[in-house]
Simulated scan of single mutants.
Amino acid sequence: MKLTSESWGEVEGQSQPVKLFTLENSQGMKVQVTNYGCIVTSITTPDRDGQLAEVVLGYESLERYLEGHPFFGAIAGRYANRIKDGRYELDGEVFQLETNEPPTAQHIHGGSKGFDKYVWDFAVEQQHEAVYLHFSRVSPDGESGYGGTLHVTHTIGLDEHNQLHFNFKATTDKPTVVNLVNHSYYNLGGHDSGLVDGHELTLYADFYTPVNENMIPTGEILVVKGTGLDFTLPVEIRDNKGKVPGGTFDHNFVINQKRKLGEYAYAAELYEPLTGRVMTVLTTQPGVQFYNGAKLSNKAWFGRNGYKYESFDGLCLETQHFPDSPNQPHFPNVRLNPGEVFEEKTIHRFSVK
């Protein structure tokens, strides 16, 4: 395992300098991560012929990220995904958050200055077969409208088995709500190879949480069988795309907990037939949001090497708690109390076939 770091600039108003870390293993896999927003800027993996390609959408400089982006590779928090009307209640106290998603007027991904907009402290852990970066920050009581001072550690690591680790830990001094995810966009054909429609996707999920016109869960938990959301067996994304409005997938799936590897459940497997690349997702989280990048054409995003990302050029598999859980008491609990530890872990395992 090899780890290098370089200075990557600074963010106005934040004293911590920005670093870019490069993690490499002996299998030919390389990952780049910055402590600004815990962003995974690059994942390079070999195909079945040993040819390397960049498989996440992203930029080459800090300046480009500071200009704005649709959460390319970043952490989303304090609460990832949406909260209805930006409101939640704990023990009789109502917390009003920013409604920062213009089309829906809902709160999303922690607000306009969520965890993705901060420079994090960091510590390095080097093991014989793995390297971990431990990013940490303190989110003060009232930040973005949330209650409680939250101490957060987000660990990103690479091991010799081509496994990329995303681990989260948090504690609080007052009751609060927490939902933390990594928001990378993947294209296993290469970040500049165009549509992801030809990828084969398996989701280990028999149920999903339907939403209303504002993308807020109705509270129902419905079966995927017989719908365009059925990925319980491998299916090319294009085959199901015509069965959903606008060809858009942006849905939370309820992970089937029956297929496990230790503490992890299998959430998804993504396969790109032309290159043979496979990405298997395992997690301790209860849900996974499958988003096929339908809105990428809403703005002009020019990524690495000037390539323009269009709709459906990358997809997200965000392991998470369910959207709007603070207002849906029958959903898995997202409340964190003093004395408790929020802890969730996800592995993205890369291979070929």
Rank of each mutant, 00 (worst) to 15 (best):
G287W: 00
A267M: 11
F312G: 03
P286N: 06
L315H: 08
N327C: 05
F290A: 05
Q285S: 12
Y291E: 08
H251N: 15
D324A: 05
E269S: 10
L261P: 00
Q289Y: 02
Q328A: 00
F302N: 15
N298L: 11
Y309C: 04
E310P: 01
E269K: 14
G314P: 08
Y309F: 13
Y271I: 11
V288W: 08
L270I: 07
G293F: 02
E310A: 15
Y271C: 09
A294W: 10
K260V: 15
R277M: 07
E318R: 13
F312Y: 15
Q289P: 07
V281D: 00
E269V: 11
P326Q: 03
Q257L: 06
F302E: 15
N256P: 09
K258N: 15
E318K: 11
K299L: 04
K308E: 13
Y309H: 11
C316Y: 07
Q285H: 14
Q289K: 01
K258A: 14
L296P: 08
F290I: 03
A294E: 04
D313L: 03
N327G: 08
N292Q: 07
I255D: 06
A300S: 14
Y309E: 00
A294I: 00
F290R: 04
S311N: 13
V281Q: 09
N305D: 14
N252P: 13
Q320A: 05
C316N: 09
V281K: 00
L315R: 05
E263W: 00
G287N: 10
G276D: 08
N327I: 01
F290L: 13
L296I: 01
Y264I: 09
T275E: 08
N292T: 12
L296N: 06
I255M: 10
G314T: 09
N256M: 09
G262Q: 11
F302V: 12
V288Y: 05
T283L: 00
Y264A: 10
A267L: 12
N305E: 15
A267K: 09
Y271A: 04
W301L: 06
Y271E: 04
G287A: 13
L282P: 00
G293K: 03
M279W: 06
Q257D: 14
F302P: 08
E272Y: 05
Y309V: 06
L296C: 06
Y291I: 01
K299G: 00
E269G: 06
F322E: 01
K308M: 11
T280R: 13
T280K: 15
P323W: 03
Y307R: 03
A294H: 12
Q328Y: 01
Y264Q: 10
E310W: 03
E263F: 01
R259M: 13
F253H: 14
V278C: 12
F322D: 02
F312I: 02
L317D: 05
V254T: 09
E272S: 05
L282K: 12
E269R: 14
T284S: 10
Q257R: 15
R304G: 03
V281E: 02
L315E: 12
I255G: 08
Q285K: 12
K299C: 00
L270K: 01
F253E: 11
N327H: 03
D250N: 15
P323E: 05
L317Q: 10
G276E: 04
